[in-house]
Write a protein that binds this DNA or RNA. Structure first.
Length: 653
RNA sequence: GCUUCCAUAGCGCAGUUGGUAGCGCAACUGAUUCGUAAUCAGUAGGUCGAGGGUUCGAGUCCCUUUGGAAGCUCCA
């Protein structure tokens, strides 16, 4: 057989040979650093026997793909260490994940001290340098083997595998774990790892099943890479909006007000208002939207028509008891039906469509108490929410327009490169969660697929993520810790018009059901602000800053001029303040830097005499002396264009 | 809702085997009037989240409870 290597060279063997033996054949050095193989692009174990012609890439420790194998082996070392220290713990599963690995145990909870002990034990196991060997058993024998070892979770895993499956195990010096691999050849290959945290997890993610203890860790090829990763995690903590947003006094929470109900301070409110004014004007002036203003609550009757009463009652704040009270009200968890009744206010002709309604809409959702987090999961939030009532023949064009608007918003915020697009589909296996016919679902999903393809937007498809009334496009972003949240959603709805008896009159004078697009252009302000805080680490583009310029008089003598400068800036729409405290200029600059202000204007005798300002910015440091008029012209231009200036390297002290 | 951890001045923290509640920043008062990242001096601020228990004595140990964090589950 012929084996083509990565560099194009070809090796020929007369009989089947394992990848590790091929590596040894090439050089002993290569065999030492080999972590896995890649046969025709598929990651496989080094022990894999190659039987026919193929392309082989031997993955070495420095290859990023090796991390998956290193981490997987690290999770086995973790399991062995736990079994040594806690013999009663039962092992379950332990995969490699994006930035590390975890292993779930049925055990008493682990404390940080336990993790430290386990970490020390893992180091011992690695130092002992156990050879890792692989063997297989027929299914029945595998079950018996794991039963004898007293590992019921492993038995359950094997029972789910096909009858005729050959079950693979990995043995590292006596510790044997059911595993599909791939793994390193020796525990020594785990060179740099750290256990990061422990938490609770359910067996197979099912809250009705056993509660397990999950230990998270991370592993890298080199100690420096591990250190860099831990440094990134520290940086993420510094950027965390839930911490930085409070530090910067953008928002706060109060225990007597309640969980998931953030309060925005003047600074945070100003930022949100800048975003809101921008979006409202943009939608109304350039994208043909009409603004509505509808109630924050409604009688249960409305939600019964919309289907929310049956599908989403648990998530709503409901006032009153249906048994006792004549009328029951609920705060709205969405805007849709309210805007439908705006549409229904007058009879519409086909000429009136599309009707693009938008509203800066406050919504209420009764999330579970453990779900709330900073500004990203809250019980009251305000979203730039809209519904487009369109003729079926306009649907594709309008849906495209919604995505184009969303993309424009993301670009302006400077975050378009950080998102992923998802086509969220229904789940045909779970029909009771959705309304409408399967054919309609498949048809609309294909329409959206075509639109995304036409717009040249790369996307992934997620089963079971659709709204109950239709499929949608979700635009997701990751937070500093890599957790994904939906920022923007555009939803296709060919069904709810029926429930609300919405129609328009077509050319023939017939009543026709319109289609509906549920969409947001920038998402909800709370979540978007959280995202911006983390993206910019609090150093926002000038246009969205609550305080854009601070005028710093050298001494009290120049306060009058400083106030004059400030007034001139405010008159031009720039958010400016004066730091008139009797402090030294160095101190005022330090504070302004810590407040992450874009611009500081130092003014003293010279500036007052020449009607100039000494400009110091977050982007370029000392920008020199400019005439006041010039500075105002520049900064108003920067704000109007929503320019994102490049930050200079941090000189924080 | 579940598991673990945490809760001490406005914020960030320290507080020894249980023995008189502390530090830094901020705040306030005064002095200083200064040219690009911290001027000096002083003052005030706390039922140690709440409730109960053990003890001669609890910030510290135990129980209950409230809130926060991480993770899980859920998410129109």
């Amino acid at each position: 057989m012929k084996i083509t290597l990565k560099d194009g060279s070809v090796k020929e063997y007369s009989e089947a040979k394992s990848i590790i033996d091929i590596a040894k054949d090439i050089s002993e050095g290569l065999a030492r650093v080999a972590c896995a193989g890649e046969i025709n692009g598929e990651l496989v174990d080094l022990r894999t026997e190659i039987e026919g012609d193929c392309e082989l890439n031997i993955i070495t420790a420095t290859d990023p793909k090796a991390l998956y194998v290193i981490r997987h082996t690290a999770s086995h070392v973790l399991a062995e260490a736990v079994k040594r220290l806690f013999p009663n713990a039962k092992v379950t599963i332990g995969p490699a994940i994006d930035d590390g690995f975890y292993y779930d145990f049925d055990s008493e909870p682990f404390s940080r001290e336990d993790l430290d002990k386990i970490e020390a034990e893992m180091k011992k196991i690695i130092k002992e340098g156990h050879e890792i060997t692989r063997f297989t058993l027929p299914r029945a024998e595998a079950i018996q083997y794991m039963e004898e070892k007293g590992e019921p979770f492993k038995v359950e895993l094997i029972q789910d595998l096909p009858e005729d499956a050959e079950i693979s195990f990995y043995d590292q010096g006596g510790f044997v774990d059911l595993c599909a691999g791939p793994h390193l050849m020796n525990t020594k290959g785990v060179k740099a790892f750290k256990l990061t945290s422990s938490s609770m997890a359910y067996w197979r993610g099912d809250s009705n099943k056993a509660r397990l203890q999950r230990i998270y860790g991370t592993a890298y090829n080199k100690k420096e890479e591990l250190a860099a990763h831990l440094e990134r995690m520290e940086d993420a903590k510094r950027r965390d909006h839930n911490r930085l947003g409070r530090e910067m006094e953008l928002f706060t929470t109060v225990d007597v007000i309640g969980q998931g109900l953030p309060l925005f301070t003047p600074k945070g409110t100003k930022m949100i208002m800048k975003l809101q004014r921008w979006i409202e004007d943009l939608e109304d002036n350039e994208w043909g939207y009409m603004r509505t203003r509808t109630p924050l609550m409604a009688k249960s009757d409305l939600y019964k028509i919309s289907g929310h009463w049956d599908h989403y009652k648990e998530g709503m704040f409901v006032f009153g008891d249906e048994e006792k009270d004549k009328e029951v009200y609920a705060l709205r968890p969405m805007t849709c039906p309210f805007q439908y009744y705006v549409y229904k206010n007058t009879q519409k002709s086909y000429r009136d469509l599309p009707c693009r309604y938008s509203e800066t809409s406050t919504l209420f959702r009764n999330e579970d108490s453990g779900e709330m987090h900073g500004l990203t999961r809250v019980r009251q939030f305000t979203i730039t929410e809209g519904h487009l009532i369109v003729r079926p023949d306009q649907m594709v064009e309008e849906f495209k327009g919604c995505l184009a608007l969303a993309k424009y918003c993301l670009e302006t915020l400077g975050v378009n490169g950080d998102v992923t697009y998802h086509l969220s589909k229904w789940d045909p296996e779970n029909k009771e969660k959705y309304i409408g016919e399967p054919e309609v679902w498949n048809e609309t999903e294909q329409h959206i697929r075509d639109i995304l393809t036409a717009l040249d937007i790369p996307f992934v498809e997620d089963v079971g993520e659709a709204a109950f009334y239709g499929p949608k496009v979700d635009i997701n972003a990751k937070n500093v810790y890599g957790k994904e949240d939906t920022m923007i959603t555009v939803q296709w709805d060919a069904l709810l018009a029926e429930q609300f008896d919405m129609y328009y009159i077509d050319q023939n004078g017939d009543k026709v059901r319109p289609y509906i697009i549920h969409r947001t252009s920038m998402g909800c302000y709370e979540r978007t602000l959280a995202w911006l805080i983390e993206k910019y680490a609090g150093k926002f583009p000038t246009w969205m800053c609550a305080e854009q310029v601070r005028v710093l008089p050298i001494s009290d003598k120049y306060e009058a001029y400083a106030q004059e400068v400030c007034r001139a800036l405010k008159k031009s729409g720039v958010d400016a303040t004066v730091d008139s405290r009797s402090e030294k200029i160095g101190f005022k600059i330090r504070e302004a830097r810590l407040d992450k202000l874009p611009y500081m204007l130092v003014v003293g005798q010279q500036e007052e005499a020449d009607h100039t300002v000494s400009v110091r910015s977050r982007f370029a440091g000392d920008e020199g002396v400019k005439s006041l008029d010039n500075f105002i012209a520049e900064i108003t231009e920067e704000i109007r264009n929503k320019t994102i200036r490049e930050e200079m390297p941090s000189e924080e002290k």
